[in-house]
Design a protein around this nucleic acid. Sequence first.
DNA 1: CGACGTTTTGATTCCAATCAATGGGTGTGG
DNA 2: CCACACCCATTGATTGGAATCAAAACGTCG
Lengths: 207, 207
Amino acid sequence: MVGARIKVKRGSALFATGDRFKSLYVVRTGFLKTETTLEDGRRWVRGFQMAGEMLGLDAIANEAHTCDAIAMEDSDVCVMPYDLLESTSRRVVALQRHLHRAMSREILREGSLMQQTGMPAQERLAAFLLNLSERLHARGFSRSELVLRMSREEIGSAVGLKLETVSRMFSKFAADGIVTIQQRHVNILDMAALREIANAKLRSCTH
Amino acid sequence: MVGARIKVKRGSALFATGDRFKSLYVVRTGFLKTETTLEDGRRWVRGFQMAGEMLGLDAIANEAHTCDAIAMEDSDVCVMPYDLLESTSRRVVALQRHLHRAMSREILREGSLMQQTGMPAQERLAAFLLNLSERLHARGFSRSELVLRMSREEIGSAVGLKLETVSRMFSKFAADGIVTIQQRHVNILDMAALREIANAKLRSCTH
DNA sequence: CGACGTTTTGATTCCAATCAATGGGTGTGG
DNA sequence: CCACACCCATTGATTGGAATCAAAACGTCG
């Protein structure tokens, strides 16, 4: 049930904002980001996608892509023509289920990001690191040692902070002995502490 | 293709967080809000739903609702059993399309809310008012005269601000002659100005 | 009328953005 | 191989906008 596979070179786009919607995509190998250009020309990172994750779901509504999907490293992507998905999912219940869940999960993903609005910077970054850690772990990598494929600016853009703030918070985590950071190599030393920071609301209430 | 219709009394819940997912819902008449309880016990409004809008899409992924849907006024809601939707949409292409689009639109909705993260308070509120205005207009109501069915606190919660800030910004809009406000009755006097505020990024670049 | 919930307004605080400068890494060409 | 340039990251100083704290005005309903 898999369509063609295509390679996307680092820095080039799998699809761009405004492209007519024809297919959904699943990352096979590599690492992508999705981003949009705001009215003022600044770019806003909507998410990062790694192996097994789907792209393009937002394009169904208007039959046009609403963001650019850009490879952050040479990537291998599976193309699934949407009309084929439509017709096949009419016959194969499992596929229908899978598709609906993928969409629903995307709604949840955006929602949980939304939730961070209004949270302090350190909580957002803790959550960002934990999320990355989990996703990498689910793919067989170390839970504690991660290599960030994106710049501080891109992280900030994704979680709603400025790059300086990202840098400061990373430094703070390092000073507190929660992580070690060398450039883009992050080592999580104290997972529990990170989790506590990410859910700090709890304590502020227990007070 | 419509299931049963049920009435939800003002203040009571159509569904609650954790409820097993069985159906999607479409508002017939009335006005609902969806909200979740954060770990610290505070409540966070995820959105407001009016006639024609769908609820429950976020529950598909985990077969459980992730928010409470509460009627803000006596409402009339159409219940669509999900397994029936599934099987019917396998036969009726139009329904399948409709469902997919509804999900995709929900993804877009969350995304456009996300976009407001980092915007100044007045831009968010301008956007909020415009959004409400559009949706009411699409349902045959006046574009400029609206009655807010929710409190300042709920508005703030939905757009990521504190109630005092919401109140201040409303006062500011009124002082600038953009709107008149008496309690929850809002009259938009200068739609163009409101739109400019909502897209202020443009000007800050043109500078 | 009186009590409660909501809204407005004011004073102050605090966090992240901004402005600004320095340091570190990487890659290229002399 | 080193020097230079460029990009990215860190750190410091200052500013600004929303949150917070606090109090008063308004509305609604029993």
